[in-house]
């Protein structure tokens, strides 16, 4: 498990690509074939579901590095880009459903929303911050930016994660159970990194 052949990694990637499309496939089937899947308020179902999956993929992406370090499965780092891009993909669909269903493309109303309503503001901000990350996700961009700058830029995800959870937290009307669960998972994933930094700093004031 620690090491996989190139072929095996390729196969895992194909599987992951298809599995990650399943939530979208379910929604499309709901819209066009089985309306009972989406219930009486299909638009809300789609917005909620894509928001849920965006958040889940974001957390899964953030789980890759801790998982790699704890398990020693070096190869799972190779899945990180696809997971991150899926998070971005579901964020885009989520935003598109808000723009079309809730505001019927009324740009003025959307801008007012972004300015006036904190939960929309932070949601929109996480989308905007995800843009440069998605745009620099290719090998070519990593090379062009250089590893250090690329890594620095992609630390933005440590801001995006909390913003996304906050967006959910502030959106919920009364029952905070779900946002609390997401917040706890995020806290563990970020907490792991903080603890790792401390450990490294203590263990070695190393030769650079």
């Amino acid at each position: 498990m620690r090491r996989l052949s190139e072929r095996a990694i390729g196969a895992v990637k194909v599987c992951l690509f298809l599995v990650a499309l399943a939530p979208l496939a379910r929604l499309l089937l709901g819209v066009f074939v089985f309306p009972e899947w989406l219930g009486a308020n299909p638009a809300e179902y789609i917005t909620r579901s894509t928001g849920d999956w965006a958040l889940r993929f974001l957390l899964i992406t953030l789980a890759v590095t801790p998982l790699r370090k704890l398990s020693g499965w070096v190869w799972i780092a190779r899945l990180r880009r696809m997971l991150g891009l899926y998070a971005f993909f579901y964020v885009v669909v989520h935003f598109a459903s808000y723009v079309s269903f809730d505001h019927v493309f009324d740009v003025r109303a959307i801008l007012q929303d972004v300015v006036k309503r904190p939960f929309i503001t932070v949601g929109f901000l996480s989308l905007v911050l995800l843009l440069p990350l998605a745009a620099t996700s290719t090998h070519g961009m990593v090379r062009r930016l250089g590893a250090q700058r690329w890594n620095g830029l992609h630390r933005l995800v440590y801001v995006i994660g909390p913003l996304a959870v906050l967006h959910f937290w502030w959106m919920v009307k009364r029952d905070l159970t779900e946002p609390i669960i997401y917040a706890l998972v995020l806290a563990v994933l970020l907490g792991y990194r903080v603890q790792e930094k401390w450990r490294q700093a203590r263990v070695a004031r190393p030769v650079r």
Partner: peptide, 18 residues
């Protein structure tokens, strides 16, 4: 509502708040 506009509504099962 502090968190959303009440100007329009979605007449279910329509998709659009038009």
């Amino acid at each position: 509502h502090p968190r959303w506009s009440q100007k329009t509504e979605k007449r279910l099962p329509s998709f659009f708040a038009n």
